[in-house]
Computed example of a mutant assay.
Amino acid sequence: MKTNQLQIHKLTVLSMMIALDVVLTPIFRIEGMAPMSSVVNILAGTIMGPVYALVMATVTALIRMTTQGIPPLALTGATFGALLAGLFYKYGRKFYFSALGEIIGTGIIGSIVSYPVMVLFTGSAAKLSWFIYTPRFIGATLIGTAIAFVSFRFLITQKFFKKVQSYFFEERID
């Protein structure tokens, strides 16, 4: 495939993943939790790898913050999870590694980083724990991981999924 054509395919898939995340996350939202963001992060990591998954999560978070009034938690929560989901999948070559990357990235790292960001954002240095967001973030990632698992089991059987995955990975990864 020509380089320009491959880049167009990659950008098209990236755009579709951003659109899915922007549309699905507020529809299936539990107050303080965004499990669909975890679903899309895991699928983006398995389809596009770490760099494109990180770009997808960052752009999605910025869109959600500006159009839906979501606080910076959208940015701190999603970006670490998407990056680690892609990295763990790339090197582990299994869905379970991508899910683990999302749980560690969003559920633990993202939740801890969210505390100082929200202190800066709100101007309040309330005596809260650095782990104030951790239970909700881990809960959302576990719900999202379960949904992503079902989705991935279906997608991996599709020829189209494997073809799209081959755009981003030199060899197809199961």
Rank of each mutant, 00 (worst) to 15 (best):
M33E: 00
L43G: 00
F28E: 08
Y89L: 00
T25V: 12
I104K: 06
R64L: 04
V22A: 11
M17Y: 12
G77E: 11
A74P: 02
T106R: 04
S38Q: 13
I70D: 02
S151N: 02
W130C: 08
V51Y: 05
S98G: 14
G32R: 04
I108N: 09
A148G: 12
A82E: 09
T122P: 00
G123V: 13
V59N: 14
P35V: 13
E102R: 02
G69W: 07
F154I: 13
S98V: 03
F131S: 14
S124A: 15
A140F: 03
M48Y: 08
S151V: 12
M33I: 00
P26D: 01
Y52N: 07
L87A: 00
I104D: 10
A78R: 03
F28M: 09
R153W: 13
A53E: 00
T60N: 05
F149C: 14
A74W: 00
A82K: 06
T157S: 13
L54K: 03
V39K: 07
F88L: 13
R153I: 09
K163V: 04
K162T: 11
N41E: 14
A140S: 12
T46L: 01
K159H: 13
M16A: 13
S114M: 05
M33P: 06
P72S: 10
F28A: 15
P71S: 14
L14S: 11
G92Q: 10
S114K: 02
G86W: 01
V117E: 10
S38G: 06
I173C: 02
S15W: 01
I63Q: 06
I18W: 08
S151L: 12
F169T: 04
I147Q: 00
I8H: 03
L84Q: 02
R93S: 09
L128E: 13
V51K: 00
S15R: 01
T79L: 11
Y167N: 01
V117H: 03
L20S: 13
V59T: 15
V22Q: 11
M33C: 02
F80T: 14
L87C: 07
V13Q: 03
R136F: 15
I103A: 11
V119H: 04
G69H: 04
D174R: 12
V164D: 07
K159S: 09
P26F: 01
G110T: 08
K159G: 05
A125N: 11
T60K: 08
K90R: 15
V59K: 12
P26A: 08
F28I: 09
K10C: 01
G81L: 02
L120K: 05
G77L: 08
P135D: 07
M48I: 11
E170K: 08
L6N: 04
A146G: 12
I103H: 02
I132L: 09
T145A: 04
R172M: 05
I147N: 05
R29H: 14
